[in-house]
Design a protein around this nucleic acid. Sequence first.
DNA 1: TCAATTATTGACTCAGAGTCAAAACGTGGA
DNA 2: TCCACGTTTTGACTCTGAGTCAATAATTGA
Lengths: 260, 260
Amino acid sequence: MGTGERKRREREEREELMISHAGRLLLRDGFQGLNLDELARAIEYAKGTIYQHFCTKEDLVLAVATRALQLRAELFERAAGFTGRTRERMRAIGVACCQFAVVHPKYFQLDLMLHSQSFWMEASPERRMAHGRMGERCFRVMDTIVRAARDAGDLPSGSDADAVKFSLVAVTMGSHAMALEPEIQRLCRLRDPLEATRRNQDLICDGLGWRPLLTDWDYAATDRRIRAEVFPEAAWLDVAAPGTSEPTPPAGRRRKGGRP
Amino acid sequence: MGTGERKRREREEREELMISHAGRLLLRDGFQGLNLDELARAIEYAKGTIYQHFCTKEDLVLAVATRALQLRAELFERAAGFTGRTRERMRAIGVACCQFAVVHPKYFQLDLMLHSQSFWMEASPERRMAHGRMGERCFRVMDTIVRAARDAGDLPSGSDADAVKFSLVAVTMGSHAMALEPEIQRLCRLRDPLEATRRNQDLICDGLGWRPLLTDWDYAATDRRIRAEVFPEAAWLDVAAPGTSEPTPPAGRRRKGGRP
DNA sequence: TCAATTATTGACTCAGAGTCAAAACGTGGA
DNA sequence: TCCACGTTTTGACTCTGAGTCAATAATTGA
């Protein structure tokens, strides 16, 4: 009979409700501050019902994080529609990352939280796997571009696709994470976190020998095209675009050891 | 009278005891698992006495983190004693970072935890400032080298010292953090986390145009010198040294799209 | 309509961070 | 040596919130 089907759907909708409300509260109060009694009240179900879906608080939060990762994957896939030189296409992914950090800053912080301690231990294997699958979706997009770059000769033929992806992921997450840190902002006199992140991506790409190099191509124009073609909503790109990756000033403008 | 002096010293010794024991428990059980009742029992003081030194659990943990950062600063300062080209000297700092991650892997994870949410809010301003000061110690070492590099013409004259430091910090922390993640290890088929981190540092330096570039210098020899002169205990350097930064294989060895 | 099965509930347990009134200790003066 | 006063230490207590589970409600099939 069809009853079972309806039940399954209702259950799914309720889980959806729980995840989205938990997301809201999580953004507001952080992990420690997320209160399951409050969540239960907000969604008008008993706490026990929440535990019918999620084995622990961590399990619930991981589900929220996976949802966030899904948003990221969707941005990646949109960015993958951009056409141009392979490095331009990877640049579109970089823009997608920044766009994610701009639109969902708190989700980004949540992502950082996962890189710590006992989270994974407290979550169910199913949730862990679901998260892994979403990570794969993101990596697949990058992988396609990296391989295309090698095939096109834009990347040195000896490049290890996995190593290239790792470098890009590491520099991107590291830059975002450090840029969020007030202490680092102070110590590095950081103006624009997004600009700094994108510049670091540029440095890595140049270091990898991914052609065309920063000096050989007008990437500000690329950014304008990315904006126009796949991320019309990325207003922040306008601000960063003019001075992309800090043009080397005419030699001699800076004094040797000086600083204001 | 001299009694006050003795009291101050005793108080300091007790705080020391608390921090070092808290560190032990923290490494064993993580932040969530750290139990102040257990700590009190271990150091044979009442819980109330702990709260005479630290306003919250977070405050205590931040003190432990600052202690860890001190260890890192000491490694940095040792590395600063290395002589050679400016990029070699910065490389010694990179080795120091890896050495820290090798010797105190858990402390490194603790460091990552600080980059999240409400920690700083729950700690006292004094502790926050103490941590900031220790961060400055690390940055000072880097700053000296970066400025020397610019003055020597090893870095382009237009380089912004703060931006260079940010790039290095971001890539290093990001690489370490990502390399610890089992999910990332799987997705990137990561063999040796340390090697990957150091390779990313190399890429950033090359991207910055920090001479001599990877292709123009025998950095494996530099690593041997670093090992001999400042980090004799860094046995892991031996393993990574031979194949530093993945030599480009003779062209044509890899098939185009293939993967086992 | 009703018994059997399944789902939901929220009062309860339990762990552990943080508190504070009472007890212990130290000090200086008689 | 003893006492009175201020300071430090103590651990039983409070309070919050995650996770449980027996009681209750809803659904189903006969």
